[in-house]
Design a protein around this nucleic acid. Sequence first.
DNA 1: GTATGATTCAAACGTTCGTTTGAATCTTCC
DNA 2: GGAAGATTCAAACGAACGTTTGAATCATAC
Lengths: 233, 233
Amino acid sequence: MTLRAVKPQHETRRRILDAAEELFMQHGFEGASMRLLTTKAGVNLAAVNYHFGSKDALIEAVFQRRLDPMNAARLTELDRLEKEAGGEPLTPEAIIRAFIGESLAMIEDGRNGGRNFVRLLGRTYTEPAKPIRTLIGRMYASTMERFKAAFARALPELASDELFWRMHFMFGTLSYTLAATDTVQLIAGFKPEDRHDSRALQERLVQFLTAGLLASKPDSKHGSSSGGTRKAA
Amino acid sequence: MTLRAVKPQHETRRRILDAAEELFMQHGFEGASMRLLTTKAGVNLAAVNYHFGSKDALIEAVFQRRLDPMNAARLTELDRLEKEAGGEPLTPEAIIRAFIGESLAMIEDGRNGGRNFVRLLGRTYTEPAKPIRTLIGRMYASTMERFKAAFARALPELASDELFWRMHFMFGTLSYTLAATDTVQLIAGFKPEDRHDSRALQERLVQFLTAGLLASKPDSKHGSSSGGTRKAA
DNA sequence: GTATGATTCAAACGTTCGTTTGAATCTTCC
DNA sequence: GGAAGATTCAAACGAACGTTTGAATCATAC
């Protein structure tokens, strides 16, 4: 059949990775069975073990395929910005854009599975299974180190532990947005036409994250219910 | 044995719910098997089906037990604040505190399983399994409606769809913080002594979320990276 | 065309899953 | 103390799980 004729070389590997990406996102790692996965991919049940060795190795391969290039692109963009600035510190907003731009761009990518992957990624950040946790941590380590340094240079007045928590919060917002924006809907008012408009979403996110990152410390005590200071640095 | 003598009435139900809370959090719904669960609870394998009917019904019961009182407390606190304000609109910060206070307080609750539950809750928001999604959505619906109205009254100048997204982002930050703060560590710098200090965490969160909620629209062009249109509806 | 290695295939492996069963035990009330 | 219902228990159910196997089929070389 023609399908076989067109098959480049590692067609089977790619089909398995694509199907795994989508099914892991939909059903979780344990919920997506090998039989469901191989059926969706249109390959034999034994193909996963032949090409990847085991289901765990497949999980790792799914992340490797996208996460390494994604973080590399983030670092490249950050380098480009810093070179362009020529010694001057970057604005916090520019650093935020460098970090979230790559993952948000993948949301619009419906052709290949970029969209599936970023949603899978978002839900994996809260995955407590130790092997996956360490896998993700290892893949992010150098990128996070680099971005933390960039933020520290851009915000020299911000204490180190404050920066840690603000980055934690920013990452959480991005993670949840990637994972849950078109799945769980706790708040009424979502407009379906926004679903694939990653540009508008990115602007909203940048606004929110930049303001949060630059939040001023509470300059006075707050009461049990008293109002907050609404100034931003 | 004394243990049997003290057993109040629905001791078995409670032990199953406690074990389920912890194991669902650690291994996910599909990863936590009935045998592991009942062994940890110290009850017979058949006890879950006897008391709850099925594993799915147990999952629902786990959420019912905590989520209904939690959201009720949120609404009570919001009512109290509005009565106290006597017609004046609340500050956004006060509304934020009313929403996140209850769940953050549970983090410090190590005695019973409150801590386990909020972490389970945080990771469940990104769970795409449809029955669980609709279950959570149904349990949150009225609370979210009420808080959205409160925010709208506090921020009359904020467009409706802007408010939707800012609430979405705020909820995401809280969710990720509950789920991942002491599990996945992508950013170096976490101090273990902060782990149970929910007061300090709450202040940091309130600061971040309030700033994000009140973020002003980008009044001028943003930085170098991509000179896009900055306007948002 | 035929040997060689890579890949696919149907079938089966042993294990674990959620659930059910029916007898045994406990609790409650007269 | 004995009947009646609630609960617990060990054992088994069929189904689905990830993985393995060995033969069949493919691609590529000479």
